[in-house]
Design a protein around this nucleic acid. Structure first.
Lengths: 317, 317
DNA sequence: ATGAAAGCGCTAACAT
DNA sequence: ATGTTAGCGCTTTCAT
């Protein structure tokens, strides 16, 4: 019932190899034959079986994409862009969610290995050692992590953090707090290092904090105590939570304190006040990762971040 | 370099078929042999090639999931849940985005057909006729659309809409507006029909509107003119936009007007005021759709919706 | 319980 | 330009 290359061959009076060539190397077959085969194939509703093809060619035309949490607003734009890039080159995309479990990364890569030509791994939690071992099984590109031997797509958060603090400084803020992320976070360290280098600004680090709305909410009290007039939050979720916590303490944003987030996720754009934030080029990262994978180039790329000024920052009182 | 069943057979001194059975029908092989094979396989780092297996069995252990827009906050929880359900049964999930293009649905289903055991189609835009035709190529289950012959997962928005209006009525609102969705939307019609049936409430329909934040924002003026004290919005995005538009007109939520949304997306939970909304069981729908697909049951299911009362509703002034 | 052999749908030399 | 043939890695009769 499923129509194969053989059926098409029989019906169009040529051999299977000719049919095969019609699809995978059209230029090698006579125009007339080709069009006949194509017509018959169309009539029969023939579609090449990619899995069977993969068996001989060794290329599946599938890619895997592994993220920590599909439902985290940070990832969907990345997934969407990766999908679009894959689609454009006629690749299909497996998407997987590790649920923040480092062990799941390894397991998923293993499980994918025979079925994909490569995998995109976002913000991996596994150790470098584990990743290097996995790299032998399947080509991959890593987003948001430096890894020798693998193609890497980085987003320059440090630069963005610096831009954010400079923006605050430009508005007249002299005392700024960094509401940091979780301990051991590469990103958080990057942000901290860069944010501390803006002249004329005294930076207080508050944290570590959970990288969530709750984390931000909980930090509100300490932000007030610190007496700062401006805040850079680890990410937008933290910023949103913080704004809410501040409101509960009777502090208004941006009237009493200015807050800038990082990531530029949708909820931040919809928030009130609309969040000033460091936009992470997640879509570009997803697209680029897929392109690197398909073209098998082992480059290390650093993507620019930029500051998006909206309504949560203003000059201090 | 890639280790196959043959390598394992050689190294453990048995025939390939025994190795095969060790993995696909363990009970058919002697315990001692089995453990030896397993040990050798482990040592060699052997992993069965699923694509090759699919060629003979006809089952790929892959599923496809097609949504209109991965980045729309409505979908990620559904995708996540579908992935978890698939993973649990050792299935892999292709995820695809149609970018709201009806034609892409058909194309994607075709492209997937040989590579998956079934596909989950969310809120399809294609005609019933087109879908029925596609159903012959590959089993699928549809979410949010009635379709004869295919398994169907529905979410009972109508019920939720009614709950929402009753909630408003219970708070004392007598004049309520429905800020409707786009013309021709099945969901919008369902909502409208159900919302109109609450006794003691005079319902004004405002719309059609774009199903976006901008759509809601633009409707604010007409909401004010209508003189209602309560509003049910087509979805959370519209509700959020509306709240913002109302604020621009000097109207506070819930002080001056109560607003309830539909969907229960993340940005609504983070919004200020936190949105009262009709929670759509998207995660349950994703999970169920996958289960239905794997078990090949052709059921029509209607999932309950429920009202989540948060801070955007209160008694009228 | 295990072996032998055929074949899933396709591609890729190698012929002609 | 097209036909022939041998697999790709695996499962599955059918034997033994």
């Amino acid at each position: 019932m499923t129509v194969t290359i053989r059926d098409v061959a029989r019906a169009s009076g040529v051999h299977v190899s000719t049919v095969s060539r019609t699809f995978s190397a059209p230029h090698m077959v006579n125009a007339a034959t080709r069009s006949r085969v194509l017509t018959v194939a169309e009539e029969l509703g023939y579609r090449p079986n990619r899995a069977a093809r993969a068996l001989t060619t060794g290329r599946t035309h599938n890619l895997g994409l592994i993220v920590a949490d599909i439902a985290n607003p940070f990832f969907p734009p990345l997934i969407k862009a990766a999908h679009a890039a894959a689609r454009q080159r006629d690749y299909h995309l497996f998407v997987a969610d590790t649920d923040e479990e480092p062990a799941a990364e390894e397991e998923l890569i293993q499980a994918f290995s025979k079925q994909v030509d490569g995998v995109v791994l976002c913000s991996p939690r596994s150790s470098n050692k584990a990743l290097e071992r996995l790299a032998e099984r399947v080509p991959f590109v890593v987003i948001n992590r430096r890894l020798r031997g693998a193609a890497t797509v980085l987003m320059d958060v440090g630069h963005g953090a610096r831009l954010a603090v400079e923006h605050l400084a430009g508005l007249g803020h002299r005392r700024v707090a960094l509401v940091a992320g979780p301990a051991g976070s590469w990103t958080s360290d990057e942000i901290r290092a860069a944010a501390g280098q803006v002249p004329g600004v005294e930076l207080t680090v508050i944290g570590p904090n959970a990288p969530t709305e709750r984390g931000g909410f909980a930090a509100a009290e300490r932000v007030r105590e610190s007496g700062v007039t401006g805040v850079l939050a680890y990410n937008d979720l933290v910023a949103i939570g913080l704004i809410e916590g501040l409101a509960d303490l009777g502090l208004e944003v941006p009237g009493d304190v200015s807050v800038v987030g990082i990531d530029d996720i949708v909820p931040g754009r919809l928030n009130r006040p609309k969040l000033t934030t460091v936009a992470m080029p997640t879509a570009a990262a997803g697209r680029l990762a897929v392109d690197l994978l398909i073209q098998e180039v082992a480059a290390t790329t650093s993507l620019e971040t930029r500051l998006v000024v909206r309504d949560s920052t203003a000059a201090p009182r």
